[in-house]
């Protein structure tokens, strides 16, 4: 019998990085609650989600791309592009918001698909191609309009004012959207063949090939899906700000990548968890809220703390992954 060789590994040990991330979130949130009066409250907790809704949605898509061992630098620019596209379509071309959203989603998905095709079919580095995608989307956004366009449509007002009350918790539309996307992302990542294929491709492409998994399709699809997520984030951004702005989301891709890495997903691919991304969003948002609450701490501490967390996590991952 060979069974004696292995003991049952505990859930905690298997999901160590997730546990570490959760502990860091609890620690940060606890510290902030300790220091700042009124931090420990439902509205603050809800605002962690609603204030970072479009960043969070982008992070969900980014998680899937990073699962596959790729990266997508274009998401920030796609958010800016879709937001101004939608705003212009509604304001100047009098399109119904729903139609405008559809056009925006099509545009985002189309751009993602094209990048995926280039990356897979010509074996080009994702880094470079999505960089080009970023420039393209940013340029096109500014081509549509160089200035921010406000959206005045009664449908928009209604949607943005929509909220659900759950006990003492009042969830606004943007938070609901984020939660929905997170749930969908969770299902895709952990309960579909597609999600597991992505992890297999990122974990060991050669093996995935020999296992007969549909590599090419999965790779193209994940960039398409991420383009869709970015467009969705763009829509939520228009809801949140009530306008479209071609300059929106500059540098947002970095925050999204940081969130994914802080969530314990390996940037080289093959290992990760969508719950980690949720925790990453919460950690990111907690730091931001704490700095805002403090009032004395300047905004740049945000970047320094996030950078330091990145360093800690990357070193931690290297230590955990050293061959035993």
């Amino acid at each position: 019998m060979i069974g004696a060789l292995t003991r049952r590994t505990s859930w905690i040990r298997r999901n160590l990085s997730l546990v570490v991330t959760a502990a860091i979130f609890v620690l940060l949130f606890g510290l902030a609650s300790q220091f700042y009066d009124g931090f420990f409250s439902t509205p603050v907790f809800v605002s962690l989600l609603s204030d970072n809704a479009f960043l969070g949605i982008a992070a969900v898509g980014m998680t899937l791309v990073i699962f596959s061992g790729g990266i997508d630098l274009s998401v920030g620019a796609v958010i800016g592009f879709t937001s101004i596209l939608i705003a212009t379509l509604i304001q100047e071309h009098h399109l119904s918001p729903v139609l405008a959203w559809l056009v925006g989603m099509l545009a985002g998905t189309g751009l993602g698909t094209s990048m995926g095709l280039l990356i897979h079919c010509f074996r080009l580095p994702p880094f470079l191609i999505t960089l080009a995608g970023m420039f393209l989307a940013r340029g096109l956004g500014f081509w549509i309009s160089t200035d921010s366009v406000g959206i005045a449509h009664e449908f928009y007002g209604r949607i943005s004012a929509y909220e659900i009350t759950l006990g003492s918790m009042v969830l606004p539309a943007s938070a609901l959207m984020l939660l929905a996307v997170l749930a969908a992302g969770y299902v895709i990542a952990h309960h579909t063949r597609f999600g597991r294929t992505l992890l297999a491709v990122g974990g060991n492409e050669q093996s995935a090939l020999l296992m007969g998994l549909p590599l090419g399709g999965a790779k193209i699809a994940v960039y398409a899906l991420n383009g869709f997520c970015a467009a969705l984030a763009g829509i939520v951004a228009t809801l949140y700000t009530g306008s479209g702005n071609p300059g929106m989301g500059i540098g947002l891709e970095l925050d999204a990548i940081a969130i994914v890495v802080i969530g314990g997903t390996l940037l080289t691919g093959g290992r990760g968890h969508m719950l980690g991304t949720l925790l990453g969003i919460l950690i990111f948002a907690t730091i931001q809220a704490a700095i805002l609450f403090d009032g004395r701490l300047s905004s740049w501490w945000m970047r320094i703390v996030v950078g330091s967390l990145l360093l800690v996590f990357i070193l931690l991952q290297r230590m955990l992954l050293r061959p035993r």
């Binding site: 309960h191 063949r193 597991r196 060991n204 050669q206 296992m211 390996l266």
Partner: peptide, 30 residues
């Protein structure tokens, strides 16, 4: 093969069933 051609970061169960997991419509029955 000599070099174990599996995905080390996934679970044993997944490695055994990857690409032919039971479930319907692409969803998995864990």
């Amino acid at each position: 093969y000599q070099e174990v051609n599996l995905v080390p970061s996934l679970s044993v169960a997944e490695n055994i069933t990857l690409g032919r997991q039971p479930g319907a419509l692409g969803f998995l029955n864990w």
